Structures are given as C-alpha cells and as structure tokens.
Computed example of a mutant assay.
Amino acid sequence: MPRLFFSIEIPVQIKQRLLQVRAPVAGARWQSAAQLHLTLLFLGPVSDDRVAEVCAEVRALAMPAFDLEVSGIGCFGQPASPRNLWAGVSPCDSLLALQAALKDVLGGLGFEFDQRAFRPHVTLARFKKQRGSVAALLDDHQSTNFGAFPVQEFVLYQSTQGGGGSVYTVLERFALEG
C-alpha cells in the first residue's frame, strides 16, 4: 500500500536558500531539494482502491489561494540533541483552514490523525541516534528570511523509501481558488 500525504510544494528559489543552511552536524540527515516541502496532512498507508475516493473528496474542497513566508529555523527536541531541524512557516489563517478542512473531510472517510496541534514547517534535517548540537545554526538563522510565495495549489504525494531517504511522487494536484 502506498504511503500518502498532502503537502505544499516549495518554490525552487526558496529551496536553494534553505539548502544553504546545511552545515556539518553529527547525525544530521539533510533533506535534498526534492524532499523539501510543507506537510499538511499525513495519511499513512492507503489501499489503491481508496486513493480515488480520497482524491474525489478533496477535489470538492473550495479553499482560497494565499501567500506564505518561510523564515527562521527551529528544532524539535533540545538544540543540543534535536530530532528534527526545520524552517519556520508563517501560520496564516488560510493555511490553518486548509489543513483543518483536509483533516475534517478525510476524518469523515475514517482516517485517523495525530492529535498534536499542526505546526507548519519545512524539515531541513532529521536526526537518529547520534545527535550533534544545532544551537549555532539556530543562532545564525533565527531571523533569516528565506522568501515568500503564493500558494495556488497543494499536492497529494506518495512516499517511497529509498537508499537516500524518501522519494516523493505527485499523485494529484489540487487547485486553490483565486
């Protein structure tokens, strides 16, 4: 069964700026340009026969286009031993409404989701066992503005595990209004 998630793609020029954050940090598995995105909602494994149903329900959503800004970096976990390093995304009302609408419509189809609050971000690096400190990176980039961009669509990705990390394939694009 394919592993699916909804996401917003990041423009190439912002990805290039995000990639410049890379630094030698013990245990960091840096994301490639192709892996940089903003996850809206993770569905997990979905049977092939349900993918069409998911897409049909999501196509019926009427949500407005909006602008996002990517700025600053932070981490999940302590800076001395992080789990993830991420770039911040301005949590505008339209972004939060889109994520909530997806969660609502897909919850109606029986999908269950993590109950933690949605914290929009772009994952830059993941850490496993050996974790080096990212404190210096946080200091250097806490107020870095990576850019703003219009969000006119979101995508349904299929995630496939590969030797260099996950590979994401767009299954469908969903236009926003306006």
Score class of each variant (00 low, 15 high):
Ser7Asn: 05
Ser7Cys: 08
Ile8Gln: 01
Val12Asp: 15
Gln13Ile: 08
Ile14Val: 13
Ile14Glu: 01
Gln20Glu: 13
Arg22Leu: 03
Pro24Val: 03
Ala26Tyr: 07
Gly27Leu: 06
Ser32Ala: 15
Gln35Ser: 15
Leu36His: 09
His37Ser: 10
Thr39Met: 03
Leu40His: 08
Leu41Trp: 04
Leu41Val: 04
Phe42Cys: 03
Leu43Cys: 06
Gly44Met: 06
Ser47Glu: 08
Ser47Thr: 09
Asp48Leu: 09
Leu61Gln: 05
Leu61Asn: 04
Leu61Ala: 01
Met63Thr: 11
Leu68Met: 06
Val70Asp: 02
Gly74Val: 03
Cys75Arg: 03
Cys75Pro: 06
Phe76Trp: 10
Gln78Arg: 13
Pro82Leu: 04
Asn84Gly: 00
Trp86Asn: 11
Trp86Glu: 10
Gly88Ile: 00
Ser90Cys: 11
Cys92Pro: 06
Ser94His: 14
Leu95Cys: 08
Leu96Phe: 01
Ala100Phe: 09
Ala101Tyr: 10
Lys103Val: 03
Leu106Cys: 09
Leu106Lys: 07
Phe113Arg: 00
Gln115Lys: 13
Gln115Met: 13
Ala117Gly: 10
Thr123Cys: 01
Leu124Ala: 09
Phe127Trp: 05
Lys128Pro: 10
Lys129Glu: 13
Val134Asn: 06
Val134Phe: 07
Ala135Thr: 14
Ala136Glu: 12
Leu138Phe: 01
Asp139Leu: 15
Asp140Glu: 15
Gln142Tyr: 14
Ser143Val: 15
Ser143Asn: 12
Asn145Leu: 14
Gly147Gln: 02
Phe149His: 04
Gly162Asp: 06
Gly163Phe: 11
Gly165Trp: 00
Tyr168Cys: 12
Thr169Lys: 14
Glu172Val: 07
Leu176Arg: 01
Leu176Met: 00
Glu177Gln: 15
Glu177Ser: 14
Gly178Pro: 02
